[in-house]
Design a binder for these strands. Structure first.
Lengths: 142, 142
DNA sequence: GGTGCTGACTTGATGCGTCAACTAACCGCG
DNA sequence: CGCGGTTAGTTGACGCATCAAGTCAGCACC
């Protein structure tokens, strides 16, 4: 039952901080981050969706919003017209760079600092094991 | 980062199961469960909200829906007209009883069975420590 | 070289959560 | 009493997620 509490409060708390300080959803943050660390700051939609653990549909909506804000642009791939590649704009990159430290800081505060190094190791093992049950077909990647 | 995956997939997976099998949100489930284990199957709104870790507003909306479905009834308290007490109906109770085993089973499958007893202990400790950071003013209750 | 199938998105409707505003009941105090 | 303040709860508007349906490009086979 402690787990239940964790499960529902931690994501909320992290999201609140991000939202408050940067006006970004965790998901949006992941999307921007995913783009920023890709070659050419670009990535195809399905790929991004997998990275951010979301459906293509969700990603599509989110990218549309991010596009309206001027953080990304979309265009069809040259070699295959079905594929859409999203690219992080300079504005988007700067925005991400501004938002990241605060977020990382919060995670550190809530999670890293609350635990001993030993517990961190345990937690990683535990998370990986559970994840394998919940979502087989995805090793402990990332 | 494994933690991030956990954090966002486990709740989702549990919710999906509940929703699919019973048409209940995790939050709705908590509300019904909270009522079922209270004296007279009744509880005042703010109390319930705290129990289910949600805002009063959210609870109000949810209870309205549950009331429409015939699972609970609301009425003002006799001694203090500001207070609303929600009561689980027989129909609601039976519905909960029907939904519970499947949910418990899923939790068991995803979490309990994935871990060793030792890890379960570690997880509880970890969860409590993090929770204390995130939401001070709430011990490891429940 | 059309016809049908699959893959990669996109869109629109619906539902839940949140925030801010509102109502109504109690409390204390002159 | 009656008046301000507080507490408990409700409501409405808005945003994001999800699901089902739709679009449109490639591919494969005749």
């Amino acid at each position: 039952m402690s787990l239940a509490g964790l499960m529902f409060k931690l994501p909320g708390a992290l999201d609140v901080q991000l939202q408050r300080d940067s006006g970004l959803t965790h998901f949006e943050y992941l999307v921007l981050a995913g783009l920023s660390e890709s070659p050419g700051r670009s990535r195809r939609m399905s790929d991004l969706a997998g990275f951010a653990n979301g459906s293509l549909s969700r990603l599509s909506h989110v990218v549309k919003r991010l596009e309206r804000r001027g953080f990304v642009v979309r265009r069809p791939a040259e070699d295959d017209g079905r594929i859409t590649v999203a690219t992080l704009t300079d504005a988007g990159y700067e925005f991400l760079v501004a938002a990241a430290p605060g977020h990382v800081q919060t995670v550190r505060e809530y999670v890293i600092d609350a635990l001993t190094p030993e517990q961190l190791g345990q937690l990683k093992a535990i998370a990986d094991q559970i994840l394998q049950r919940v979502d087989p077909g995805k090793p402990c990647s990332e």
